[in-house]
């Protein structure tokens, strides 16, 4: 544990880093806009209309989406790691993201597999979001039902992985029977992207993430007690059942909602809580929750900047970038500490 001043200083640094990465993300893109003009447009300059249109309707929504996605996924990872008291837990490992994929796949490609049932339904972004959220909740609830029976958290993680495999298998079957256009739509969704959200969708995503964050903040005391184990938490007066459901609801909203809008984005949820613990050297969720929110935003903005090849029209799939950067980070952490002390 460090002193309150150290924490304040660290938070100040992180905020500065966040501001810098925001600016970096806004100023880089397929059209080259000088930094000076970018700043001018942000401050209300409208001399160059097309540049101003790009900044306000493309780059700022993208930056905001990246921040929401990064912070929300990081927080959901932290919640999962504390709930299962396992350093390997995260939205991906427990099959939540696979559940979202299943929901999206059923909606996009299910029309050919179950001809007539979903064909009349409008396949737009909002319905994909709803389907993906429902898919992630479904998997999360299944994992929880099993969790009530299986006391061993390691077994539970493996069960989560198995749920992931099952959903992946169903997705493969669906892709096999779907036509090229639907397949393409699904594959593009599964690449992950933070750049395709309209202001209206962004607002919806913001609402979902905000709700998830509020639920997590509300349950911060129970999260700290859970660090001792469930029986200790109970003896400290924590309403275990309620705390569990609130944490799961928050995770489902965060991971499900984000995956729905931005596609499955790997490793942010697993890696950021560890990076934040490394930096802040505490287990107190009062510090960790804001820390992972900031850290997740910064990391996601940087990944998005890397994905956005400067001055070129091509954008790399963000999911690949987070994996390429995230997996070595986790390996490095493991090798350095030899074991993941939670």
């Amino acid at each position: 544990m460090k002193s309150a001043t150290t924490y304040r200083l660290l938070f100040l640094w992180l905020t500065i880093a966040l501001a810098a990465s925001c600016l970096l993300s806004v100023s880089l893109g397929s059209v080259s806009i000088p930094l000076k003009s970018t700043l001018g447009i942000l401050l209300g300059d409208v001399t160059n209309e097309s540049w101003s249109y790009i900044i306000w309707n493309y780059r700022i929504p993208k930056t905001l989406t990246a921040m929401l996605v990064g912070s929300g996924l990081a927080l959901s990872g932290l919640l999962m790691q504390t709930l299962f008291r396992n350093p390997l837990a995260g939205p991906f490992v427990l099959g939540i993201s696979s559940g979202a994929s299943l929901g999206a796949a059923l909606l996009i490609m299910g029309s050919s597999a179950f001809a007539g049932i979903t064909t009349f339904g409008l396949v737009n972004d909002v319905s994909v979001a709803i389907a993906a959220s429902m898919g992630s909740f479904l998997v999360l609830l299944s994992v929880m039902t099993v969790a009530a029976k299986v006391k061993d958290t390691m077994a539970l993680l493996i069960i989560g992985l198995m749920f992931g495999s099952i959903t992946a298998a169903i997705v493969s079957v669906l892709s096999y029977f779907s036509n090229a256009e639907q397949l393409q739509q699904f594959v593009f969704w599964s690449f992950g992207s933070v750049g395709n959200l309209s202001w209206r969708q962004l607002l919806l995503l913001f609402g979902i993430v905000l709700l998830g964050v509020l639920l997590s903040v509300h349950t911060v005391k129970a999260l700290n007690a859970l660090l001792l184990g469930e029986n200790y938490a109970k003896s400290l007066g924590v309403n275990l059942k309620k705390a569990r459901y609130v944490i799961i609801l928050a995770t489902g909203l965060l991971a499900g909602g984000i995956t729905a809008f931005a596609g499955p984005i790997a490793f942010v949820g697993l890696a950021v809580p560890h990076l934040a613990r490394q930096l802040f050297d505490t287990t107190d969720h009062k510090i960790l929750v804001p820390a992972v929110l900031l850290y997740g935003s910064i990391l996601m903005l940087l990944c998005d900047t890397v994905a956005q090849v400067p001055n070129d029209t091509s954008v790399l799939p963000i999911n690949a970038i987070t994996s390429i950067l995230g997996a070595p980070v986790v390996i490095w952490l493991l090798v350095r500490k030899r074991k993941m002390i939670f």
Partner: peptide, 15 residues
Amino acid sequence: LTEPVAAKNMTVVEL
């Protein structure tokens, strides 16, 4: 209790 503390990274005073 006899069950081990889950978060071994906690400091004594935090616990």
